[in-house]
């Protein structure tokens, strides 16, 4: 049986991890490779690296980082942030990324999804969707949730699946940063609507939240950042708890 996945997300700027990372036993908490190794060792199923660089120079550094991660890490990883062309993707895959994730660029030029999936295969194309519930309706937001659109989350999810996305990474802006749990009703609706895997993101604060994302939200994977980085939840303990709750995980 296919297992549910736990995915830590690392924000990267100029080749270094950002946000205070408070991980015991790390010599250099800013080094993405060392942090990735630690996560892989404790049972992370995949990793996501999100490039929040602002300049072209910093983006080049990101490719060097991808190469180093691919050299040393023996689990799959996704790279996202600022990817807007077939050429960007070709370079990242060439450096050893397993999957890439696109967000705003998919909304501004939806055909990019078709181009990427036909050139590189659906399996490496993750479409990240940030959405916020406004007056009861889930609306897609761009640029890290700062720019609202008139696009409905569920319409957009159906379209990206139809265009060849291999996976959807859904972040609820309402839940992100709250540590009050994932957006389970929206997750469940997404999971029913499209036949590709859904990664839940935004709101993780406790082990129970992960249980709910899988049991109520029917997510295929759950992603979190700060609860892992600050050591509030250990991945190995989390997976043991999920297993106790009859959620199939890799132990």
């Amino acid at each position: 049986m296919l297992r549910k996945r736990i995915i830590p997300c690392l924000d990267i700027k100029n080749g270094r991890t950002v946000k205070g990372i408070n991980f015991k036993g790390l010599r250099d908490a800013g080094d993405p490779v060392e942090l990735a190794k630690q996560y892989a060792h404790f049972g992370a199923d995949e990793l996501v690296f999100l490039d929040i660089s602002a300049t072209i120079e910093e983006r080049k550094t990101m490719r060097d980082m991808v190469l180093k991660v691919a050299e040393q890490i023996n689990i799959p990883f996704t790279v996202g942030g600022g990817i807007s062309s077939v050429e960007d993707v070709a370079q990242l895959l060439h450096c050893g990324a397993d999957k890439i994730s696109i967000n705003s660029s998919a909304v501004t030029s939806p055909n990019l999804i078709n181009e990427l999936s036909s050139k590189f295969g659906s399996q490496c194309v993750v479409v990240a969707i940030d959405a916020k519930q406004v007056d009861g309706e889930w609306m897609v937001h761009l640029a890290g949730g700062t720019i609202p659109t008139t696009i409905n989350l569920f319409d957009w999810a159906k379209e990206v699946a139809y265009r060849g996305a291999g996976e959807i990474l859904f972040t609820s802006m309402n839940n992100d940063g709250t540590k009050l749990g994932f957006a389970n009703p929206a997750l469940a609706q997404l999971s029913k609507l499209v036949n590709i895997p859904i990664i839940a993101s935004g709101g993780a604060g406790s082990t129970e939240h992960f249980v709910d994302a899988f049991k109520i939200g029917h997510a295929d994977a759950a992603l979190a950042a700060s609860v892992f980085h600050f050591g509030e939840i250990s991945i190995s303990d989390l997976k043991k708890e999920l297993n106790k709750n009859q959620i199939p995980v890799r132990l």
Binding site: M1, L2, R3, K4, R5, D45, E46, S122, Q123, G166, E167, N195, I196, P197, D220, A221, R250
Partner: peptide, 27 residues
Amino acid sequence: VKVPQMGWNTIDNLKSDLFRNIREHEF
């Protein structure tokens, strides 16, 4: 089932030296 299958699954009924020192139902 959701397509693609994406993630960790077990390999079962192992029958080759290719799987030496790999346990049945390994991920």
